Amino acid sequence: VTTYKLVINGKTLKGETTTKAVDAETSEKAFKQYANDNGVDGVWTYDDATKTFTVTEMV
């Protein structure tokens, strides 16, 4: 189990959250659901070296 981080650069929501998951794909699903639940829709990137997802909304 690995800890993954999500950085949110939204128009109205900014911040970070973490989750523990067995792999990046599992954490990505959880993070995308979290973003969707909070009305964040944007461009996703992933940095495997830091286990960090970033979602950026276009303004």
Rank of each mutant, 00 (worst) to 15 (best):
E28I: 10
K29N: 07
N9F: 13
Y4R: 00
N9H: 09
D48H: 10
N38C: 13
V7A: 03
N36T: 13
L13F: 15
V55C: 09
D37P: 01
A30M: 14
N36V: 14
T56W: 09
K5C: 08
L6K: 02
T18W: 15
E57N: 04
L6W: 03
F31M: 03
A49V: 11
T12E: 10
D37W: 06
W44D: 00
V22R: 10
D48R: 06
T18Y: 15
Y46N: 00
A49L: 11
E28A: 11
N38P: 00
D37N: 09
K51G: 04
D47N: 09
M58G: 11
N36H: 15
T3I: 13
V40F: 10
E16V: 12
A21T: 05
K14M: 09
E16S: 11
T52R: 02
T3M: 11
T54P: 00
E28N: 04
N38F: 14
K29C: 08
A24F: 14
Q33Y: 05
A49Q: 11
Y34N: 01
V40P: 00
D37Q: 11
K14W: 10
Y46T: 00
A35Y: 02
V40M: 06
G10S: 12
D41T: 13
T54V: 06
V59A: 12
G39C: 08
K14F: 10
E25P: 08
K51E: 03
G15T: 14
K5H: 12
D41S: 13
V22G: 09
Y34D: 01
K14R: 11
A35P: 01
T2L: 10
T17N: 05
T45Y: 08
V43Q: 09
T18M: 09
E25L: 12
K11Y: 11
T50A: 06
T56G: 04
V43H: 09
V55Y: 03
L6M: 04
G42K: 01
E16D: 06
D23T: 06
A30W: 15
K51T: 03
V55I: 10
D41H: 14
G15S: 12
V40A: 03
M58N: 11
T26P: 01
T19A: 09
V43P: 03
D41Y: 14
I8C: 06
F53S: 00
T3H: 06
V59L: 13
E28G: 09
D37G: 05
T2V: 12
V40E: 01
T17W: 15
D23K: 04
A35W: 03
V59D: 14
A24C: 14
A21H: 04
Y34L: 06
V1R: 07
G42P: 00
G15Y: 15
E25W: 10
T50W: 04
T3W: 10
T17Q: 09
Y34G: 00
K11P: 10
V55F: 03
N36L: 15
T12V: 11
E57S: 06
T50I: 06
T26W: 06
N38K: 14
T17S: 08
V22Q: 10
V55D: 00
K32P: 01
F31G: 00
Y46G: 01
I8K: 00
G10N: 05
V40R: 01
D23N: 12
K29A: 11
A35T: 07
T18E: 11
T2C: 14
T19W: 12
K20H: 12
Y4S: 03
K20L: 14
T3L: 12
V55L: 11
T54L: 05
E28M: 15
G42N: 00
E25N: 09
T54H: 06
T26N: 07
T54W: 08
T56C: 06
D23M: 03
N38D: 02
T26Y: 05
Q33G: 05
V1L: 15
K29S: 07
G15M: 15
T45D: 08
E28L: 15
K11S: 11
T3A: 06
D48K: 07
T17V: 15
D37E: 14
N36W: 14
E25V: 12
Y46F: 06
D37Y: 07
W44M: 03
D48Y: 07
D41G: 08
K14C: 13
D37S: 10
G10Q: 05
Y46A: 00
T56S: 08
E28F: 15
